[in-house]
Design a protein around this nucleic acid. Structure first.
Length: 287
DNA sequence: CTCCAGGCAATTG
DNA sequence: CAATTGCATGGA
């Protein structure tokens, strides 16, 4: 998860494993990129950033050729958001985050994740020009696997069911079954991956697709939430999007979306549209 | 007090 | 099999 300091200087930071990555804007033409290590997850810093921020994805190929011609009105708005990047985030962190994202607002989601890192993560001291920042790593699966339900629930909106689900998922991660699914996630069919994720209580179709897209680099995964459902109806005239997201309708709408956006990058393109919809149409400022 | 917020699972038809 | 109904919680 990324954050911005409240100082007047633009200053962003994120924790990658046990290292900190900091980006500071020093003037109108340049930034400083600081990392607490010269390697991140075994990769030289430049290679890691390239992969983490999916700079290896040619953004011009995310929307298939012909999209602009077929949907000129949508394209007129969406083309301003082609700088949006879907990150390749840590799988476990992504699982916990989206398990916290059910029927709840973005502000509360972020608060839950922050509280989890502060309660269960390891404290990191990062020195900057502004002084030292006290940051926290995201806890490992083993830490969450041994957490007390009531204790974790204090971080999950006091929702004990959610806390219990997260703990059970972490234990599955520990046992190796979830880790194996992650290792194989790159090449297995999307349906197989989704099945492996959905055996866990608290992970349904939508959250499984979010994990695949944001945590496992499966840019073909296309999660459908309330916002996606709305733009599928408003922007693409899909009447079925008026009806509720039953499993059958969810799958049907996914097929429709793939017809419009293509198979390979349906989710990547979909997230750009998601962000665009919230910002431009719903005028939402939360992120 | 009501309604909503990046759904899920159990229960019916 | 597929649709409908509870649900859990904090904040606006």
């Amino acid at each position: 998860m990324w954050n911005k300091t409240t100082s007047d200087t633009q200053f962003y930071y994120g924790i990658i494993g046990h290292d900190a990555l900091l980006v500071k804007q020093i003037d109108t033409t340049s930034i400083e990129v600081h990392c607490s290590s010269n390697k991140l997850q075994g990769l030289p810093i430049d290679d890691f950033i390239r992969r983490y921020l999916t700079l290896d994805i040619e953004i011009g190929t995310v929307f298939r050729r012909g999209f602009a011609d077929h949907y000129p009105d949508v394209w007129a708005i969406a083309r301003r958001y082609l700088s949006v990047r879907v990150m390749r985030q840590d799988p476990f962190e992504t699982m916990v985050t989206f398990m916290c994202a059910q029927g709840i607002g973005m502000g509360l989601i972020r608060r839950q994740v922050s509280m989890i890192t502060e309660r269960y993560g390891e404290e990191l001291e990062v020195n900057t020009d502004f002084g030292s920042l006290r940051l926290h790593t995201f806890p490992s699966p083993s830490v969450i696997a041994t957490a007390d339900v009531n204790d974790l629930a204090r971080c999950t909106n006091n929702n004990r069911i959610r806390a219990a689900n997260i703990i059970r998922m972490a234990r599955s991660f520990e046992s190796g079954s979830m880790a194996l699914a992650c290792v194989q996630s790159g090449e297995c069919p999307l349906e197989t991956l989704r099945d492996a994720l959905c055996v866990h209580s608290g992970i349904g179709l939508k959250i499984a697709d979010c994990i695949a897209l944001f945590g496992l680099g499966r840019f073909d995964a296309f999660p459908i939430d309330t916002h996606v459902r709305q733009y599928l109806q408003e922007w693409f005239g899909i009447e079925a999007a008026r009806r509720s997201l039953t499993e059958r309708n969810y799958r049907y709408l996914q097929d429709e979306a793939r017809n419009i956006l293509g198979e390979e990058y349906a989710g990547y393109a979909g997230h750009i549209l998601f962000h665009c919809w919230r910002k431009e149409i719903r005028k939402m400022n939360t992120f």
